[in-house]
């Protein structure tokens, strides 16, 4: 069983869903892929996330929603992080969350890049009453995932951590 810790995400979480701690898997991800910052590869990333989520016990609707959350995260990296540059590297890592050591009770998904860094607290959802094109990605991620937060990577780039539990706690 992988080591895991209950992080102090409560302070830095951008998803408002719950304050119940989620045990976060650590260590090497059992699934990790690298892709370039090209929109044509989004559908492959969605398929991967949907398939792994299914193996973690989520129903089709939840799998589809998590694929959407990852799509939105990747779009943000491609558009805002890399300014649509096609040669930026993006990593998608997935861990099942196995609290009892048996069947997964959730999934952890991490998106990392080497794009320009921004202060995590400046990454916010916009006011939805202001009807205009764009700016929905962070809101969609927050609505779908049980918890999510951004952080700067150690030297370069950003990291988005997303956690989804079966009971959406």
């Amino acid at each position: 069983m992988e080591p895991r810790h209950v992080s102090s995400q409560a302070e830095r979480a951008s998803s408002p869903a719950s304050t119940v701690p989620i045990p976060e898997p650590t260590g090497p991800a059992p699934v990790r892929v690298e892709m370039l910052s090209q929109p044509r590869f989004l559908s492959g990333a969605r398929d991967l996330v949907s398939a792994v989520s299914k193996r973690c016990g989520f129903d089709d609707a939840a799998c589809g929603q998590m694929a959407l959350a990852v799509d939105e995260a990747l779009c943000n990296v491609i558009r805002h992080g890399y300014d649509r540059r096609p040669d930026g590297k993006i990593w998608i890592s997935l861990w099942p969350i196995e609290e009892s050591g048996k069947e997964p009770t959730g999934i952890k998904i991490v998106i990392e890049d080497e794009a320009r860094q921004v202060e995590p607290e400046k990454i916010k959802s916009r006011d939805l009453d202001d009807i205009r094109p764009g700016g929905l990605g962070v809101h969609i991620i927050q609505q779908i995932m049980s918890r999510s937060y951004f952080e700067k990577r150690e030297k370069v780039g950003m990291r988005l951590v997303m956690l989804k539990m079966h009971n959406n706690r």
């Binding site: 969605r46 589809g64 959407l68 939105e72 779009c75 009807i131 764009g134």
Partner: peptide, 13 residues
């Protein structure tokens, strides 16, 4: 079968 927020933005515009 699928649309992300870039498609939605197109329709809002």
């Amino acid at each position: 079968p699928y649309m992300d927020s870039s498609g939605v933005a197109t329709l809002v515009e």
